[in-house]
């Protein structure tokens, strides 16, 4: 019983960060119809930003996130404007290949400047986990969880309550109608790519104290991201949140009840099953 609760809790904690990354990928897909293979590398860049802010300037990750997220937002918009804008009209497959190229470029640049060494972030206050009700909760993960919820909720509020957010959702659901109503599609795409990148990068900053950092960590993260987004239905924000939490829980339950080595495979198997039998996602809200 205790192991069950323990793995549920750690699954939900990790899942909240997965969800944050997944939401970033899914809004980009929703608005632009592109599968961004470089999304995982944005997370990786976030992790390294977090690491360097701590190492060089001694700024705690949970403080440095306050400026890394806006920086990532800007970088995302610039990436869209100067690298992606001309490619997106060339179709899904071309953008898939292009972003795969971008991903390889970014991760190898990181390898070049930061080498392939594994790094970790050590925080003084993170040595001992909290133990409420006898369940171990690592402190950095708990803080990251709180911040991930806060950021995701902010984004949700932005999408639902503000005019710009509504325009983004409109572009995602009815591109033609949105264009007719005078929504500037290119602007929405730039904004969305910025937001998606900021979410990925922010999640990276938050994850850094809990994971190993290495330049190709994005490869695994982006694969997980696809699982999440397909689970929730491509293009659906709620779906991605649910999918992220679900994957977190499935992985941590799988590690306990199936086997540690195969825990990553479970996600992919579910992914294939969903793609084949429920292409609009488990909750049937996405676009197939």
């Amino acid at each position: 019983m205790e192991t069950l609760v323990q793995s549920l809790v750690s699954g939900i904690l990790t899942g909240s960060l997965y969800a944050m990354i997944g939401v970033g990928l899914t809004i980009i897909f929703g608005v632009m119809r592109i599968i961004n293979m470089a999304h995982g590398d944005m997370v990786m860049l976030g992790m390294y930003s977090s690491f360097w802010a701590l190492t060089l300037w001694n700024i705690d990750p949970f403080v440095s996130i306050v400026f890394w997220v806006p920086v990532a937002f800007l970088i995302g918009m610039l990436t869209y404007r100067f690298l992606l804008k001309k490619i997106v009209p060339a179709g899904e497959l071309n953008t898939l290949l292009y972003t795969a190229g971008l991903s390889l470029f970014v991760s190898n640049l990181a390898l070049l400047v930061w080498t392939g060494d594994y790094r970790t972030i050590k925080l003084d206050y993170a040595v001992m986990p909290l133990r409420p009700f006898g369940i171990a909760v690592p402190i950095p993960l708990a803080i990251a969880f709180g911040m991930a919820i806060l950021i995701t909720a902010l984004l949700y509020w932005f999408l639902v309550k503000t005019d710009t957010g509504r325009a983004i959702r409109a572009t995602s659901q009815e591109p033609m109608a949105a264009a007719l109503m005078g929504v500037n599609a290119a602007q929405m795409e730039m904004l969305t790519f910025g937001l998606g990148t900021a979410l990925a990068c922010g999640a990276g900053v938050l994850l850094a104290p809990s994971l190993y950092l290495y330049p190709t960590v994005g490869e695994i993260l982006v694969a997980k991201c696809f699982v999440i987004v397909v689970l929730g239905g491509l293009g659906s924000v709620q779906g991605a949140i649910a999918g992220g939490l679900l994957l977190g829980v499935v992985e941590s339950l799988g590690a306990v009840y199936v086997s540690v080595p195969y825990k990553d495979a479970i996600g992919f198997v579910i992914f294939l099953l969903v793609l084949l039998f429920r292409p609009s996602g488990l909750f049937g809200v996405g676009k197939s």
Binding site: G101, L104, F105, N108, L109, L111
Partner: peptide, 11 residues
């Protein structure tokens, strides 16, 4: 390390 940088660039 980082030899795949050209692959990404050329792609």
């Amino acid at each position: 390390s980082g030899h795949l940088i050209f692959y990404g660039f050329f792609m």
